[in-house]
Design a protein around this nucleic acid. Structure first.
Lengths: 197, 197
DNA sequence: CGCACAATTCAACACATGGTGAAAAACGTC
DNA sequence: GACGTTTTTCACCATGTGTTGAATTGTGCG
């Protein structure tokens, strides 16, 4: 198993670039930005650290290359809000889980969440994500006081993200998506349209 | 303002040890374990890095010294569960916010949460905190299926912690505790004792 | 074949970090 | 006032990190 690292180009046509990118994605997703080292990514891809720099430039560049979130939240949320407030809680949750449970996008989302919580102190979420993308969308769904309802919805969704994906608490992580929808959906519906003091 | 760093003991009786500890607490709370460097703590306390090592040994020792959480969760939760299931959601939330809003304990809790999310991948919470301390306590409060109800409660509480304290999202962070109790308490009550599919 | 080009590793630099041991300055006690 | 003790800084060390530039080997094309 001791693959000797001979200098120069390897025979065959291995897509080493893709392997490096994959290693970077899982490392950023599992350990965040600071916890990820270029050397560890290179080792995990069976490659010299300099090759990582050769393909993707600096560490920041590697990070944005590893995110690659092929989802526009506004686009995904559009049908949810278009169908009106009735049953919006469950629909919102269902599409939300659909995106997060997709193994194609999950590492990128996890990397963002981990790095935001650990390194950014939430400035990006506080001043970017919530007010400019999810806020306006959900605002079209609530009957009144969006400045109270939207954060309550966010708090329950964030709790879901953290317990189910970041910490992977059992049984939250293993619960089928439809069970989550059935159990938490009514709560979101209550935050969206119910009576609030 | 350029305090010249002269060698040897300072005149007067400054409690430098306490200043170092305070600087360590806020740094661990704001940046987590890996994000905190001994040099930064020392600089923030206006002190040489070696002094940090002199007072508290290694960085790990400094971390546990900085936590200093003077709260036993089981002791705090005891009256909540003793009063029975009626209104337990609001009582639980009230005591919970009482602890977290206490500026004496908040930095320690924040440091733990940040480091768990960023560095530990949640192993400590998954195998320690939830099953051995909060699980058994709450289990005495729910009528059935604690393995479903407890994680749901946890998900909403974690969401509250992250949005209100870690990310400090407005208006979650500024909302008076009693407003949070009035708005989220019923949801916890529902998770604890309501009808669940 | 010969040759430009891409892929890959090696060796090293500059820097930050956690940690150590000794020296200097003030304090407390006799 | 002499002396041991505590507080504080200085000068290093070993290690890990991001990054760079040169060197080496394979591929593809004329």
């Amino acid at each position: 198993m001791s693959t000797r690292a001979s200098r120069g180009r390897r025979p065959g046509a291995p897509d080493t670039r893709a392997e490096v990118l994959a290693a970077a994605r899982t490392s950023f997703a599992e350990r965040g930005f600071r916890g990820t080292t270029i050397r560890a990514v290179a080792a995990s891809a069976g490659v010299d650290p300099a090759l990582v720099h050769h393909y993707f430039g600096t560490k920041d560049d590697l990070f944005v290359a590893a995110l690659e979130i092929p989802v526009d939240p506004r686009e995904v949320l559009a049908p949810v809000v278009a169908a009106g407030p009735d049953g919006a809680g469950e629909r919102l949750l269902r599409t939300f889980l659909g995106v997060w449970d997709d193994p194609q996008v999950q590492p990128g989302l996890l990397a963002v969440v981990r790095s935001v919580v650990a390194d950014d102190s939430g400035g990006l979420v506080r001043e970017g994500f919530i007010p400019v993308v999810v806020g306006p969308v959900l605002a079209g769904l609530v009957p009144d006081r969006p400045e109270v309802r939207v954060p309550l919805v966010a708090s329950q969704m964030v709790g879901l993200i953290v317990t189910r994906y970041v910490l992977a608490l059992p049984p939250m992580a293993q619960m089928p998506a439809e069970d989550v929808v059935a159990r938490v959906g009514p709560v979101l519906q209550h935050y969206l349209t119910g009576d609030l003091p």
